[in-house]
Design a binder for these strands. Structure first.
Length: 285
DNA sequence: AAGATTGTTGCTTA
DNA sequence: TTAAGCAACAATCT
């Protein structure tokens, strides 16, 4: 599923497409994906505009024009937000043209705008959700997220402060959205590789040097992934239905049993904290 | 055919 | 308070 770079790519795409367009209809095929009362949810969106789109970690926040409510959308593992103008065919794919028809069997929420364009929320595994919050609840929710790569308040000081004093496993810690926001299972492995640190290390055993490397790697990887519109392994698509380009830069994720680009030894895959974890046993210490 | 899958939360246990 | 393990959510792929 989308991590910070993928969600940021979707945010930027959606902003250019749906901002200030009046929502004419809200079709909810799977009511369980909406965390509000359905009737209330529809009422708060119908004939309203989205006036801004924000993001915290992997959560999208769409500001509704009443200035009092915010539509939060989480894509979890397989959620997609795809905007289509006019007809219902999209063409995408970073290399090969890809034709898909929308809605498809996983299109569970569909917004229709005044100009007949549509926004499809597709979610095969149905882990994602849409939830309208008032401004207070939205602010409270944002406070629960840790500093995130690429943001103003993310620097070596805030990174170190978030980690220091902990004894937990490095990978699990970096995946904890309340400690550092936005990093998921692909980029955490890539960050550890670039920092030359084993994901199995405990926080309290990391040297100043290693912490610095991890911080720098997190900035580098996340920014580069955003610049490349994210990574598509299977389900991820941006707001235009296109795949991300970062897959060609992956050094360890999904490369188990293949040669490390640096030392030519084999990349290993283990299970750590319940997640598939990729690393180079030679390059990472 | 069992095990894995880009995420998160809640429960249990320590 | 901190941390780890596990199940759950559900569908698909290998």
């Amino acid at each position: 599923m989308p991590e910070l770079p993928e969600v940021e790519t979707i945010r930027r795409g959606l902003k250019t497409k749906i901002l200030n367009k009046t929502i004419k209809s809200i079709k909810i095929i799977k009511p369980n994906l909406v965390r509000n009362d359905i009737f209330d949810f529809q009422k708060k969106l119908k004939n309203k505009k989205i006036i801004n789109i924000d993001r915290v970690g992997k959560l999208l926040i769409l500001d509704i024009e009443d200035q009092k409510h915010h539509l939060t959308i989480h894509l979890k593992m397989t959620g997609q937000l795809i905007y289509v103008e006019g007809d219902k065919i999209i063409a995408g794919g970073h290399n090969l043209p890809l034709v898909e028809k929308l809605p498809n069997k996983y299109s569970y929420i569909i917004l229709k705008f005044e100009d007949n364009s549509q926004l499809f929320f597709n979610d095969m595994r149905q882990f994602g959700f849409w939830q309208i919050l008032n401004t207070q609840d939205k602010e409270d929710l944002k406070k629960k997220y840790g500093p995130e790569p690429g943001s103003k308040n993310y620097n070596f000081r805030s990174f170190k402060k978030a980690l220091v004093g902990r004894k937990s496993v490095l990978k699990s810690t970096l995946l904890n959205q309340q400690i550092i926001a936005g990093i998921g299972n692909i980029y955490v492995d890539e960050i550890c590789f670039r920092a030359k640190v084993m994901p199995t290390r405990r926080i309290n055993t990391l040297t100043e040097q290693e912490l610095k490397k991890l911080y720098q790697a997190s900035q580098y990887i996340i920014k580069k992934a955003i610049a490349n519109k994210g990574t598509t392994f299977s389900d991820y698509r941006n707001a235009e239905g296109h795949k991300g380009n970062y897959i060609k830069y992956l050094k360890v994720f999904g490369r188990q049993k293949q040669q490390c680009f640096t030392c030519k030894n084999n990349i290993k895959k283990i299970k750590l904290g319940g997640r598939g974890t990729h690393f180079c046993p030679e390059c990472q210490k």
